[in-house]
C-alpha cells in the first residue's frame, strides 16, 4: 500500500530557517542543512524548501543551501518560492530539487506550468495554491496570500492539473497558523476534482489534526506543516506511530 506522507516545510531566508526552530539536540537550529538531515533521519517522507528571500543575492544563498542539502539528504525535495520562469526550474533542479512548486508565477504566467511539464515532466511540477474564502467562494491569492486574484480556486487548480501540474499543495489561508486543524471542507472540494496527489497545508496543531485529516479526506495524500515540527510540538516519530496504530498506511 502506498503510504500517506508527512512533510515538514522549511521557510528559508538568507540561508537560515525562519519561523523559529526549537530543537535542543541540534547544534545549529536554524541551519536548513542540519534541520533537513534531522527530519530525514527521523521519519520525514519528503521535504519542502521555501525560498522567502526577495533579493537576487538571497536567491544565490538559497541555491547554495539547496545544493548542500541535496548532497546530504536522500529523500524527495520540493522547492518553492520565487519560481516565475523556466530558468528558475533549471536553477533549482540542477541543485538537486526533485519537484518545483509554483504559486504566484503560475497566476502571472499561464504558460509556465504547461511549458515546465513538457520540459521536465508533470511529476516535477507542483501547483501550490494559497486559498481563502471570500463571500462564500474559494479564491486564489497571490504574493504569499496578500492579493486576492478573484479567481475561483477549485476550477483554477483543476485547470493547472489539466495543463500538466502533477501534484497540488493546498494551503488554506483561513486555517493557516490557527492550529485547530486542516481545512477539511476545502480539501474535500479539491480532492474531488483532481486525480493527482494533493498535499494538505495550513492548520495542523496536533497529532489528532493529522488523524482527522486522513480519516475525513481519504483521497488526500500528505500532510504538510512547519512550526509545529520545528518547535517540537509534534514529533514526526510519534505522529507516525499514532498513524500506524490508527491503521493509516504509513512508512515507519
Amino acid at each position: 500500500m502506498i503510504t500517506k506522507r508527512i512533510i515538514p516545510c522549511l521557510d528559508v531566508k538568507d540561508g537560515r530557517v525562519v519561523k523559529g526552530v526549537n530543537f535542543r539536540w541540534l547544534s545549529d537550529v536554524s541551519s536548513p542543512v542540519e534541520l533537513a538531515k534531522f527530519y530525514s533521519d527521523n521519519g520525514a517522507d519528503e521535504l519542502v524548501f521555501y525560498d522567502i528571500t526577495a533579493s537576487s543575492e538571497g536567491r544565490k544563498i538559497f541555491t547554495d543551501i539547496l545544493r548542500q542539502t541535496a548532497r546530504n539528504v536522500f529523500i524527495p525535495l520540493t522547492v518553492g518560492g520565487g519560481i516565475s520562469a523556466l530558468s528558475d526550474f533549471e536553477r533549482v533542479l540542477s541543485c538537486g530539487a526533485d519537484k518545483v512548486s509554483v504559486n504566484t508565477g503560475a497566476i502571472r504566467n499561464p504558460s509556465l506550468i504547461p511549458e515546465a511539464a513538457k520540459l521536465y515532466g508533470s511529476q516535477c511540477v507542483v501547483i501550490s495554491a494559497d486559498v481563502m474564502r471570500v463571500g462564500g467562494e474559494f479564491h486564489v491569492f497571490a504574493r504569499g496570500g496578500r492579493d486576492d486574484t478573484g479567481i475561483e480556486a477549485v476550477g483554477w487548480i483543476k485547470s493547472c492539473v489539466d495543463n500538466g501540474a502533477g501534484e497540488v499543495v493546498l494551503n488554506s489561508i483561513d486555517t493557516d497558523g490557527v492550529k485547530r486543524g486542516f481545512d477539511i471542507e476545502m480539501l474535500k472540494a479539491v480532492c474531488e476534482c483532481v486525480n493527482v496527489p494533493v498535499i494538505a497545508s495550513g492548520g495542523a496543531g496536533s497529532i489528532d489534526d493529522f488523524i482527522t485529516l486522513f480519516r475525513e479526506v481519504p483521497k488526500v495524500d500528505a500532510g504538510l506543516a512547519a512550526s509545529i515540527f520545528h518547535f517540537g510540538e509534534v514529533s514526526i516519530t510519534d505522529l507516525k506511530k499514532r498513524m500506524f496504530d490508527e491503521n493509516i498506511p504509513v512508512r515507519l
Binding site: 500500500m1 502506498i2 503510504t3 506522507r5 517522507d45 529523500i75 524527495p76 508533470s122 511529476q123 502533477g166 501534484e167 486525480n195 493527482v196 496527489p197 495524500d221 500528505a222 512508512r251
Partner: peptide
C-alpha cells in the same frame, strides 16, 4: 491516482543480491 507517487513497500518474489541488506516490506520511493 496516476502516477503512483510516494513511498510503497517491497514484496520479494525472487532472490536478488541487491537486497542483501534490505528487509522485505521496506519502503522505497
Amino acid at each position: 491516482k496516476i502516477p503512483q507517487m510516494g513511498w510503497n513497500s517491497l514484496n520479494f518474489t525472487n532472490k536478488s543480491e541487491i537486497y542483501s541488506r534490505t528487509q522485505e516490506n521496506s519502503y522505497v520511493y
